[in-house]
Design a protein around this nucleic acid. Sequence first.
DNA 1: TTATTTAATTGCAAATAACAAATATTTGAT
DNA 2: ATCAAATATTTGTTATTTGCAATTAAATAA
Lengths: 229, 229
Amino acid sequence: MIDDFPNPIVTTDVVVLTLKDGVLRLLLAQRAADAAVAPGVWTLPGGFVHMDKDRSLEDTVRRVFRTKTGGEVAYLEQLCTFGSTDRDPRGWSLSVAYLALVPEHKVTGLDEQRTRWVPVRPCPDLPFDHRAIVTQALERVRGKAAYSSLPAFLLPDTFTLPQLMAVYEAVLDQQLDQSTFRRKVAEQGMIVKARGARAHTGAGRPAALYKLSRPALQDFGRVLLSTRD
Amino acid sequence: MIDDFPNPIVTTDVVVLTLKDGVLRLLLAQRAADAAVAPGVWTLPGGFVHMDKDRSLEDTVRRVFRTKTGGEVAYLEQLCTFGSTDRDPRGWSLSVAYLALVPEHKVTGLDEQRTRWVPVRPCPDLPFDHRAIVTQALERVRGKAAYSSLPAFLLPDTFTLPQLMAVYEAVLDQQLDQSTFRRKVAEQGMIVKARGARAHTGAGRPAALYKLSRPALQDFGRVLLSTRD
DNA sequence: TTATTTAATTGCAAATAACAAATATTTGAT
DNA sequence: ATCAAATATTTGTTATTTGCAATTAAATAA
């Protein structure tokens, strides 16, 4: 293998989002106390590409996520790549940022001392260019929420319509109209009724249970949110 | 500078699009006859990150584009990053792909022997993962065309409404309704009348000249294309 | 002058969305 | 049991937006 040029340091960083207590939250990890750069600082989880272990960039991301949480993400998408001389004091470095969504209940093996869920709004202060990465992630997630099934990956496999509408509202950071939301979701055929009991959580009529009609991300022809005013 | 891990080869590749003869076209470059991999093959223009010359990934892209064409792009946006063991026979490699738009008349210094404009539809056969990159570029450009001023970066600084509609149709690969297009463009305030003479090209009423109301990309609230049927 | 060509505007029916209200189904209190 | 309260779900009604077609405008060419 011939390579005429020296290569930059290559890492991945992941913006992991979940819905906890009705609020969109972000996973932060504390860097090792003996890290060469920013020891003990809270940052996005990330790590070097291990050319021996990882066959692809996604492998790196999934390995990092497993290491920090012991689980698997429900949705993973590449965000953007930052590369420059000055983003890391060690010199020319490149980081491929990813967006991951995971339902709260699927993350069980969290090391409470070294990892933490923090609200994404307002965006916390973060070192390096991690704040820019989080901003990009929120824009992406908000953009796709408007015309896809993306927010549903923050929910359990079966969910109610009020739950579904709540995730959309949390992600879009905007109130939605009930009847319009239901009509559109129905038209898109994005969900189907799930077998089994209904959800009763206290008073009121119990909501029917649904699940995604397809396991992959679905794009709609039209937009879900109100574009007026 | 300490670095515990060996790093992959890092390159950038650019999908440069222009509108030529009313058709969306893609810039291809012929690899050197003595290249270690795929000598003489037509590929996307690209090159290694030069850690000494380039301060950022965009620097690399702009340097590559200048080298091939002698000009500057009108619009540049990062697309996606491919990284794996098997995309290049030389081993673990990573390529950051970019999308660039340029109006035809601004590219003058083309080396006809080593560079070539080819129609993007149907997508030409390309080595490595360049075909996947082009597919991504087309999806991105099509997606953004539906709700932004992006296609206008394929036009000269001043243009007519029929010209503007033609680029949108070329990029979207879809016919648009005249009156709806004009209504929406006007509502968005995306363009303003340009001073100076009108464009008369032969018979028929001459069209008025317009220019973008802002030099940067503008997002619309609504979608430009017909979503029916 | 008049036909032809392309640009630009206008009117109207059909589709869609926002808003408001009504109905349904449950739990919990009397 | 019955009724009130709570939440889910559906149904109208009106205003906005869109798609389509026709009309008007301004130029060239015969």
